[in-house]
């Protein structure tokens, strides 16, 4: 009956060539892979593979430079926005992005993040927020929710002794230097498509030289949360999204 549909003219989706063929080291079901892929697809669709420079962070995504087939550099822990600032000022015609997790961007790199955004550096910051330090074994991060269990808060985060979770994206949106700030997720096909549109917009805004763009992606950490990938995505919907609501936080006023 069915003739073979697997022909080049029928192709509707394949892995973008901006991603290398290396097998990613991320845990099964981790949102990092999806976030990498949509960022690579945006670079591919805009045809800016040769004009893009990325800055990898410290954290789970420390090896991001192995997966993007663009020029990349590694920054010291939390310092990616500072390194990206330097690169963008030396090469003002290039597209520069940083890719950071919540431990990198919201804990050790808070100063660099806030000041880069306040100066309005024309870079794109992709911020992956999974509420935990995934790489080092699931310790509590600044973004860990109240009552959320981690290896250093085994009875759940207690606000009195451990402080409040940090909404760094809202904080950055208050700064005059930020231009486009949004929060997305990558756990369903619909949310992936939306997140991709947001990243594409942010990439395009860079050429306007109007300020920093930050795209937060609320992600799962199924290993750190001790759940299966599907359970982790459900838990994220039920618990992370009420505190970290999805949507645009700061949009450019035309």
């Amino acid at each position: 009956m069915a003739e073979n549909l697997i022909k080049p003219e029928n192709l509707v989706y394949k892995k973008t060539s901006v991603m290398t063929d290396k097998v990613m080291h991320y845990c099964p079901g981790c949102g990092h892979g999806t976030a990498h892929r949509i960022l690579a697809e945006v670079i591919d669709e805009m045809g800016i593979q040769n004009e893009t420079i990325g800055v990898a962070p410290v954290g789970c995504s420390v090896l991001a430079y192995n997966y993007f087939d663009v020029d990349m550099t590694e920054a010291a822990h939390g310092r990616a926005p500072a390194v990206a600032t330097g690169i963008r000022r030396v090469f003002p015609e290039k597209y520069v992005f940083t890719y950071q997790g919540d431990g990198d961007l919201a804990a050790i790199g808070t100063a660099e993040t806030i000041h880069a955004c306040n100066r309005g550096e024309n870079i794109l910051i992709v911020f992956i927020n999974n509420g935990i330090y995934g790489m080092t074994g699931g310790q509590m991060a600044p973004t860990t929710l109240e009552g959320m269990k981690s290896s250093t808060s085994p009875r759940g985060r207690d606000i009195k002794t451990m402080g409040n979770p940090l909404k760094i994206t809202e904080l950055v949106a208050q700064l005059p230097g930020s231009y486009f700030v949004t929060r997305q997720s990558v756990h369903t096909p619909g949310s992936v498509r939306k997140a991709k549109r947001a990243i594409k917009k942010a990439m395009e805004y860079q050429k306007l030289n109007k300020g920093t763009c930050l795209v937060e992606i609320v992600s799962n950490c199924n290993s750190g949360w001790k759940m299966t990938p599907v359970q982790a995505n459900k838990w994220m919907e039920e618990n992370m999204f009420p505190f970290f609501p999805l949507g645009d936080i700061k949009v450019p006023q035309e």
Binding site: N10, V12, Y13, H32, P189
Partner: peptide, 21 residues
Amino acid sequence: TGCTNCAVVCPDAVITVYREK
């Protein structure tokens, strides 16, 4: 049906999708 949902959500980009034109 070649809707690409699976490929779009796959973290490791393992799925290639074809659809009849």
